[in-house]
Amino acid sequence: MGLFILRRVGVMILTGLCLTFLVFTLTNLYPNLEKLAKTQGNFRMSDEEVTSFLERGGYLQPMVVKYGEWLGVLPSYRHENADGSIQGRCILPGQAPEEAPEFCGVLQGYWGFSTVFKDEVGSIVATRLGLTGKLMFWVMVLMVPSALILGVLSGMNEGSKTDRTLSTVAITTTATPEYVSGVILIAVFASSAVGLKWFKGTATSAMEDANFENFFLPVLTISLYGMGYIARMTRASMAEVMTAQYIRTARLKGVSFPNIVVKHALRNALIAPFTVIMLQFPWLLNGVVIVETLFNYKGFGWTLVQAASNNDIELLLGVSVVSVFVVLVTQLISDIGYVYLNPRISVS
């Protein structure tokens, strides 16, 4: 088992490096840098000025070297200005060059500085991630149990009326992306035009003080889309298990129907949806971005949009690293969980 996890972690790190390099490359292309120079300096900079600005920041080195520096495995670039002073990524304003560390990358905990929020990327990401974590927690609490119940109920009696009804519900929710369901939910439950006004149409206040009124709609919006998908997976898996020979064996052993479902079918039927739930994470992240934008909840997804649309390179990199990391970790958990759930796979 240890070896298996080790191998998976190895693949994960490799994937992570490839992805971050990709993001790094895409965000550090010349047009982006040019834009960066102009926003940092001024918009009327001539091409030479841009070049010299980039030169000073070390942006004109080869991509791999820059990536190495950002990662913290290569000593960071230092530039000697005309006046003899030395500037560099690791040298904080007012710090003597000699005292500054030679390496300052992600590995050393230095994530860079956000040009939009004028703050350390590390701390921004941490706060925002906390807010999104709160959102995700409630999404999971709402989505997973209801999806599983929905799926099991409709799958255990395939073709029945319950199944037809619940399946239609599930199909409808999978056909409703967050930006549609969010709009509809706000329109029905929060707008003055309909007038129900049960919930609030924004979740900005939920950042400090989340309650049912200001937090339920965003949570529901994210949950709905994923719920239908998981429910359908569970249903398919459950329906397949229920036709398996060993279920017939159990039935002809005299096991009662509720016991067949709970003791014999459930564990086998949950193996497939479990992986699906875990692999839903990249999707949920998608939903989070949409919902946070829609409900103006300033969490991780909102930050991503801000960083991306404002060419905030370091922040975007930080956000990317974290999201890729989250996705990879869930994949790892899904692999390990699969092994635990499925006794047919033995790991020696």
Binding site: A244, Q245, T249, H264, N268, N342
Partner: peptide, 13 residues
């Protein structure tokens, strides 16, 4: 008793 012994036993029990 059935034809396929593997299929008639619950794999997760």
């Amino acid at each position: 008793i059935y034809q396929e012994p593997m299929a008639s036993l619950n794999p997760a029990m």
